[in-house]
């Protein structure tokens, strides 16, 4: 039997082209195995081979979604693969979104089987887990050794046309699909057993988990913006020069609160970014590009806003867990309220 054909999608980092300074490269295709493709190639063995690797910069993809998608689709089409593998992206947000977006497009428009892999908190997971098979991985490339066998196992099932089992069984994220099967015990007995376990405080597994919609309704609009006190918050890692509180460049464990009452403009001499997830050159040259203090000061002077709050709050939104981000904001939002802030502009990179 001839080997099945696989096309692999990776970003500039895993291709060894470069880090954030190369995140704007356009899609390119190489008729060889690149980066993590080596591990896939080894574990796919005789069953399948990677016939081409498509590489695209994470920023380019996310800033030019339609163009990038179209270019990559053309590349995939040319190789007529049996399977398209994207990533794994672990907890890299832009990479995860790129993997999910392109995998969905290949699946829906070309009718080719696809899989990708990422960490459960990757924004790409929530966006695409219902549409494509996403194998759950650890949160960093250190988890590659486990991710590759999990993804390969799943890939082989798809290639052989074997039936895909339940999410826990095949280690993919639940797509919210229910399938009928014959249980050993009837429903009433299972329900009572579950209830007894619950009453005893024992662990039990629900047969129908409720979806977790954590949505917050929009607050009422600001009545008179010319009298409002406005605060700036950022996940872009803007900090006073030297990063006095040593906010981590990724997986931040803290946020900073810094006084800007004496600033009408942020410059290279006084502010920089601590963020390790994007090319810092532009933000370091002029932090107003991330935290628009200069413009807000002008607007304050002209009376277009009431005032700019004396402090800004900042953290690095790079691989930082949802739980940490929530805790940071829940804490400083109380201060914002106590300080009479009426509206917030939150900037993200």
């Amino acid at each position: 039997m001839s080997k099945k054909r696989v096309v692999h999608y990776i970003n500039q980092f895993f291709a060894g082209i470069g880090g954030e300074e190369k995140a704007d490269i356009k899609p390119e295709v190489r008729e060889e195995v690149v980066g993590p493709g080596m591990a896939f190639s080894t574990s796919l063995k005789e069953e399948a081979e990677i016939v081409a690797t498509i590489i695209c910069g994470d920023s380019y993809f996310n800033e030019n979604v339609e163009e990038a998608k179209a270019e990559i689709m053309e590349m995939v089409k040319k190789y007529q693969p049996d399977l398209f593998i994207a990533g794994p992206a672990f907890n890299a947000g832009r990479y995860g979104v790129a993997c999910g977006t392109i995998a969905k497009a290949v699946q829906d428009e070309l009718g080719i089987d696809v899989i990708t892999g990422m960490y459960t908190e990757n924004p790409g997971a929530d966006m695409y887990k219902k549409s494509v098979y996403i194998i759950e991985t650890g949160n960093s490339a250190a988890a590659m050794r486990k991710a590759v066998p999990d993804m390969t196992k799943f890939a082989l099932k798809l290639l052989k046309g074997e039936e895909i089992g339940a999410p826990e069984e095949d280690k993919y994220m639940s797509r919210g699909i229910r399938r009928n099967y014959f249980a050993e015990e009837q429903g009433s007995k299972r329900a009572v057993n579950m209830l007894i376990k619950k009453l005893k405080g024992e662990e039990y597994i629900t047969e129908y988990p409720m979806p977790d919609f954590d949505r917050v309704e929009a607050n009422a609009a600001v009545k008179d913006i010319t009298k409002a006190k406005i605060a700036l918050v950022t996940s872009g890692g803007t900090v006073p020069k030297g990063n006095p509180d040593k906010i981590e460049s990724s997986s931040a464990s803290k946020y900073g609160k810094y006084d800007i009452s004496n600033f009408t403009d942020l410059t290279e001499a006084d502010h920089e970014t601590a963020h390790g997830g994007y090319d810092p050159v532009y933000a370091n040259q002029d932090s107003d590009r991330v935290l628009p203090v200069d413009v807000l000061r002008d607007l304050e002077k002209e009376g277009a806003i009431g005032e700019l709050h004396n402090y800004f709050y900042t953290t690095v939104g790079n691989g930082t867990s949802v739980a940490s981000s929530k805790a940071f904001a829940a804490e400083f939002a109380k201060e914002l309220i106590a300080d009479g802030v009426q509206a917030v502009i939150l900037t993200s990179t």
Binding site: N62, E63, G93, R94, V97, P123, D126, M127, D214, R215, V216, E217, A218, N219, A220, A221, V222, V233, S235, T315, G317, S325, K326, F328, A329, A330, A333, K334, L336, I337, V341, Q342, A343, V344, I345, L346, T347, S348, T349
Partner: peptide, 28 residues
């Protein structure tokens, strides 16, 4: 963060480049 600020009762606008991420996160 944007959701927690909103939850606390302060109207918040999220300015970001990758809008789909913001939509997933739950900014209004």
């Amino acid at each position: 963060m944007v959701k927690e600020i909103e939850r606390a009762g302060i109207p918040v606008v999220h300015i970001c480049t990758v809008v789909p991420i913001s939509l997933t996160v739950g900014a209004n």
